[in-house]
Design a protein around this nucleic acid. Structure first.
Ligand code: DTP
Ligand code: MG
Ligand code: MN
Length: 835
DNA sequence: ATCTATGGCGAGTAAT
DNA sequence: ATTACTCGCCAT
């Protein structure tokens, strides 16, 4: 036996079964390649809480087929508790044994049986996913077995090899069906460039070539865009048709497909990351999250003029020798875009992975709440805490305080805002599920032993530091550094534009992600499905927030400043001189246990008169718009564009008259039919199945029309519709824009070849992503390709004038005496009452 | 099966 | 006309 060191990055962990026993397998990326390190000394277990004594429980548990039992002391929300650790033979035995243990009278409950075996190992051994480690190993039978391990501190991230892929498949008039529709192109992109695999010589061979290529590249990370729900399961089914093994695992295994509302595909030894999931959760400021949109937003591809190919048209390109090249370039471009997005988004996923103590493929698929939970699970182990299981309750609680805004235009306004308010409150008042004291115990505490929340009066021990405080201190610090980094990039300004913008975007994404994660610790305590659910914690945090902002308001007023508005942790003040702003902020930071920051100086700001809707121009020339239609994805572009121009004319040019004329001119253009249809499309998400809506909604009716027309529609999808003239409700006149082929003279003509009556076979559905983008799968012909009559509809110009453009502009201009009637084109005097 | 939280606006439907 | 309610999206 020889002792060796394996030094490298922990990429993944799983286990193999040998002789009925589970052996941990670590995938470690070293300088000389990826090495497997085994550990056969670790056994799966869970905890049993006791109803009575340890002996009773042990005796009862002995009847089960357990490998071992051990009385241990662990903490439950800070209090030491005796319990039994039940060691089992194999991870697969856990579900059954947990159930049988729970059924025993002497066992009150089971804990931590849900922690996956490999994760249990990583947590218990203090390893860090994607972290650098030194493993002492011994060689046995040509394999490394671990004898000792050490996680090494570093901020550095490993350089991982990435492969992106994307599939194109044939179909007949509806979404491709993996039972019969072949994949004809697989495009792949790596750091070396792109590679195309085509089915000219058969799908079978193409899949095999792709698999060989993947094997040769041996990527650490495989990325797709919506692959978990589409490309992967489709490829699985096609491979099955040809009896081909989809052996993409690093150990030659096929992926593990887990069923669920959303797909979950696990590739052994590699990280399978579906970037659509990541973009959906982390990338902000986009109306839709299609591959193209996100790639362009992140600046990873040049927006080339490339006709995007509808998935239903793939056949026509494929079968036409003259156009096949176009299809191939399209496929190649998709793989490149996916690869490019990975380059931008993966580093943050790797960092989150370290924080949360789960591997990046899992983290990338988790909601923020579960990320918080796994973060806590690993911290809990270190603290000897067992993961709790509270009983959920339903009622909600009061949140942040929003002040009534003072309507109108204001000059020289300072905006102040507390840094990381709720997390800082949780730290300052030691708010945590394990520091909460209730009932008799709470009443008996001495005054100096606890903090008591205003209004709601929940009490928290001052000592010792709670679980959440310990965790949040570090996370807040990490976020503070990330924000400083972003600000440094922004200040560095001016230099080279393009690269700087990319850098600013990424550092901003990082600081924002950490901020939201930190705030999610607060939200998590108020989430009924959370293991550490304690509504009192969330409620107390919000109550202290209301208290602190009111303190700040009082102080501001005492100093003679006018409070124009405030939301949760912010204040907009007028009458503050330049020197006073920083002084006010630092004085409050001294007075209160939180940091108050000067967030912006507004040269001019306009409050619409309702909460959460305002716009301002800062001294450095930045325009901030909050809540207004400009920021919303469910208004047509024309209305948004006009509102944006009105705001600029008002705030930068002080020209409400000019702005009103602009609106009137636009109304004229609209009535004359001089506006692109694209600017009139309204988009709203279909959030649930048709049958689950309790009220009639325009976008839902539009979606039904789309479905009746033959297009597969599913929840999560953005419905794009326009409004047609006619009688009845709006919802009777909302039509999916996809139905129309022509727009001339204010009239829309439906696609002639479409059939309204055809019945669509339900098959694999390419979900929201694809159709939210440019490659919607609209049916062009019925199953028999029969043509049907085209129909002509007239656009409801009046709707766009009265319900889109004018309301958006009027929100601002009514304050300056312009009535809706005037904005719509009527002469001035007729409409004086509107003021 | 999924889900961090609450406050808030504005549009539309349907009942009054 | 008013009002209660649902829905989607946004601010924090
Ligand atoms: N996404 C969210 N989830 C839960 N709570 C939130 C969320 N966003 C904001 N809040 C709550 C908690 C915040 O501390 C508080 C004030 O919001 P905000 O000022 O935007 O963030 P912040 O104070 O945490 O960070 P910052 O340092 O950027 O101001 O509102
Ligand atoms: Mg704020
Ligand atoms: Mn804040």
């Amino acid at each position: 036996m020889s002792g060796d060191e394996v030094r490298g990055w922990l990429l993944d962990a799983d286990y193999v079964t040998r002789g009925g026993r589970a052996v941990i397998r670590l995938w470690v990326k070293t300088e000389s390649g990826v090495v497997r390190v085994f550990d056969d000394s670790f056994e799966p277990y869970f905890y049993c809480l006791l109803s009575g004594g340890v002996e009773d429980a042990v005796e009862a548990l002995e009847a089960l087929d357990l490998r071992g039992l051990e009385g241990v002391e662990r903490k439950l929300l800070g209090s030491p508790v005796e319990m039994v650790r039940a060691v089992v033979h194999h991870p697969q035995d856990v579900p059954e044994l947990r159930g049988r243990a729970r059924a025993l009278d002497s066992v009150e409950g089971v804990r931590e049986a849900h922690v996956p075996f490999a994760i249990r190992y990583v947590i218990d051994r203090g390893l860090v996913p994607v972290g650098l480690h030194s493993f002492d190993v011994e060689e046995r039978g040509g394999e490394f077995f671990l004898s000792d391990s050490e996680a090494l501190e570093t901020e550095e991230l490993p350089e991982l090899s990435v492969l992106a892929f994307d599939c194109e498949m044939l179909s007949d008039g509806s979404a491709p069906d993996p039972g019969k529709d072949e994949v004809v192109v697989i495009s792949a992109a790596t750091a070396e460039g792109t590679e195309l695999f085509t089915a000219e010589e058969g799908e079978d061979g193409m899949i095999q070539s792709f698999l060989e290529f993947l094997d040769g590249v041996d990527p650490d990370v495989v990325v797709t865009y919506n692959g978990d729900d589409f490309d992967w399961p489709y490829l699985r089914d096609r491979a099955e048709v040809h009896d081909v093994d989809l052996d993409v695992g690093r150990d030659g295994s096929t992926p593990v497909f887990r069923d669920g509302a959303r797909g979950n595909v696990d590739v052994r030894g590699r990280l399978n990351v579906d970037l659509y999931r990541v973009a959906e959760r982390d990338v902000g400021g986009l109306r839709t999250k299609s591959l193209e949109d996100v790639a362009e937003h992140l600046g990873v591809v040049d927006r080339v003029d490339r006709a995007s190919i509808d998935s239903l048209d793939v056949r026509s390109y494929w079968e036409d020798d003259g156009r096949r090249g176009e299809l191939l370039r399209y496929a190649e471009h998709d793989a490149e875009s996916t690869f490019g997005i990975a380059t931008e988004l993966l580093p943050l996923q790797l960092q989150l992975s370290r924080l949360v103590h789960r591997f990046p493929d899992d983290v990338s698929k988790m909601g923020r709440g579960r990320q918080v939970e796994w973060f806590l699970v690993s911290e809990a182990h270190e603290a000897g805490e067992v993961v709790p299981e509270p009983s959920p309750s339903e009622d909600s609680y009061a949140g942040g305080l929003v002040l009534e805004p003072k309507k109108g235009l204001h000059d020289d306004v300072v905006c102040l805002d507390f840094s990381s308010m709720y997390p800082s409150i949780m730290i300052a008042y030691n708010i945590s599920p394990d520091t909460l004291v209730e009932g008799k115990e709470a009443r008996e505490l001495e005054e100096e032993e606890f903090f008591q929340a205003p209004e709601v009066e929940h009490r928290f021990r001052r000592e010792p530091d709670g679980f959440f405080k310990r965790v949040l201190v570090e996370l807040i610090e990490e976020r503070r550094r990330a924000k400083a980094q972003r600000d440094a990039v922004l200040r560095g300004g001016e230099r080279d534009g393009e690269q700087l913008r990319g850098e600013a975007r990424l550092t901003d994404l990082r600081q924002r992600t950490l901020k939201v994660l930190a705030n999610s610790f607060y939200g998590y305590t108020g989430w009924p499905a959370a293991a550490w659910y304690r509504q009192e914690c969330a409620e107390a945090t919000a109550a202290w927030g209301r208290h602190l902002i009111q303190e700040a308001v009082e102080e501001a007023e005492e100093r003679g400043y006018e409070v124009l508005y405030g939301d949760t942790d912010s204040l907009f003040l007028k009458g503050v001189s330049d020197g006073e702003a920083e002084a006010f902020a630092s004085d409050l930071t001294e007075m209160l246990p939180l940091e108050l920051e000067v967030e912006a100086f507004y040269e001019t700001i306009f409050f619409t008169g309702v909460k959460k809707r305002y716009a301002g121009v800062t001294r450095d020339g930045r325009m901030d718009v909050k809540g207004l239609e400009v920021q919303r994805g469910d208004w047509c572009d024309l209305a948004k564009e006009i509102q944006s121009r009105v705001l600029h004319m008002l705030l930068e040019g002080r020209d409400p008259e000019g702005a009103a004329e602009l609106v009137r001119g636009t109304v004229e253009d609209l009535r004359a039919g001089n506006v692109d249809l694209e600017k009139l499309v309204i988009r709203k998400t279909l959030t649930k199945g048709f049958g689950r809506y309790k009220s009639v909604q325009a976008h839902v009716e539009a979606a039904k029309r789309l479905a009746a027309w033959g297009r597969d529609v599913s929840p999560g999808e953005k419905v794009e519709f326009v409004v047609i003239r006619g009688g009845g409700r709006l919802s009777d006149r909302s039509y999916p824009v996809e139905m129309f082929e022509e727009y001339v003279d204010g009239h829309l003509v439906t696609d002639r070849t479409a059939s309204k009556k055809r019945v669509l076979e339900q098959s694999f559905r390419r979900k929201a992503v694809n159709r939210a983008g440019s490659s919607g799968s609209g049916a062009r012909t019925g199953p028999e390709g029969e043509a049907c009559d085209s129909r002509k509809y007239e656009l409801d110009v009046g709707y766009y004038v009265e319900k889109q453009v004018v309301p958006a502009a009027s929100r601002i201009l009514n304050h300056f005496g312009f009535s809706d009637g005037y904005l719509m084109g009527q002469p001035r005097q007729a409409t004086f009452e509107a003021f």
